[in-house]
Computed example of a mutant assay.
Amino acid sequence: MLEPLSTIRGEPQLARNTRKLDVRITVVNPSVRFTERLRMHQVAAGQKLANHNIPALLTGSGVDFHQATAIDAEARLITLDDGAILHYDNLVYALGSSTDTRTVPGANEHAWTLNDPRLAHRFSQRLTEVALAGGGVTVCGGGLTGIEAAAEIAEAHPGLTVTLVSHAEPGSMMGVKARTYLNRVLDRLGVVRMVGVKVTKVLPDAVRLDTGELIASGLTLWTTGVKVSPLAAEAGIATDTKGLIITDPILRSVSHPEIHAIGDAALIQQNWGQVHGTCQSGLPTAAYTADTLARLLRGETVKPFRYGYFHQPVSLGRKDAVIQFTNVDDTPNRWHLEGKAAVAYKQSVSSTPPLAFKMSKYMKAQVQLSKGGRATRETA
């Protein structure tokens, strides 16, 4: 019997790989909806996205679905929302991450996040009201999520004042040429940048900076800082100080080897450094784990997980984008893509998870992401 707690990524592949084995696969998730987190900035700007219902997507795959949020790692049990108890022999832990609003006073009470599509939709409704009143919105955090959100909101509401507050230069992880293009687009969209400052407090209608300055803000969107669910640590699974499950070379928990951790919830070390949580690394870890579980069940050997980054795709509204290609450790290399070509590239990346899932019902969907070649195997 095989009953993993997992997100939607990798499940059809696992079902296909274990078709001739006597196993049962169950997806357990807190919600019936598959949330495309990399598109939440579009929802926040007022766009309507497709509703991917997990049970509907699983139809015909032979995979069961239940809702639950509780694990007993020692007894290998999951308590479902309806009170039933589910036993597992192997479990895939893929609960992801969310924005951390605990570090700055007032952020949890007064700032919005892109963690939940329902909240993002309500934010978009409030955004329209603020825009009509001639107010402004403040986006806190100059990472990729903050950049995409600021650009999307500015494009959707041209008369709205959008201020992006960041301690580091927005796009600082990119090369000079890509960053120059990024700033040119933000200028065209009218996004105001306040760089080199930190938000020290979020108020109902303003944010306070470490300079003492108070910025009026009809709405504040918080995109900086990441946290993971405390579920793993509470269940007694070995985690780091942030709550990430510590994994071995084949992505199994070092304390509970029957548990495989993937995506944002896993602490994954490579020779070049630590894998950080993005969809770019989530897909390969899921595909790898689907293959690994099937191999282990067949008594076959498994090679260690090897991975390297290769791009940083950033949408800048619906009509523009910039792609920075990277080295395996996610540092920028000399190549980048911009404009319409970058828009098409970003769209293909953003549509990958649900498309790959649907296609996997008819054929084995390959995850064509760089493993980094020799650089992932050489000692740093």
Results as ranks from 00 to 15, higher is better:
155 E>N: 02
155 E>L: 05
156 A>L: 10
156 A>E: 02
157 H>R: 15
157 H>P: 01
158 P>A: 09
158 P>L: 11
158 P>Y: 08
159 G>A: 14
159 G>D: 13
159 G>P: 00
159 G>F: 03
161 T>N: 14
162 V>A: 04
162 V>H: 06
163 T>D: 10
163 T>P: 12
163 T>M: 06
164 L>S: 09
165 V>P: 12
165 V>L: 13
165 V>C: 07
165 V>Q: 07
166 S>E: 05
166 S>Q: 04
166 S>R: 11
168 A>N: 14
168 A>L: 15
168 A>E: 13
170 P>T: 01
172 S>G: 02
172 S>D: 13
172 S>V: 10
172 S>M: 04
173 M>F: 14
174 M>I: 04
175 G>R: 00
175 G>V: 07
175 G>M: 02
175 G>A: 11
175 G>E: 06
175 G>W: 00
175 G>H: 06
176 V>I: 09
176 V>D: 11
177 K>Y: 05
177 K>Q: 11
178 A>I: 12
180 T>G: 14
180 T>K: 12
180 T>N: 04
180 T>Q: 11
180 T>A: 14
180 T>S: 07
181 Y>R: 13
181 Y>A: 03
181 Y>W: 10
182 L>N: 03
183 N>L: 03
183 N>S: 00
183 N>P: 00
184 R>I: 00
185 V>M: 00
185 V>I: 09
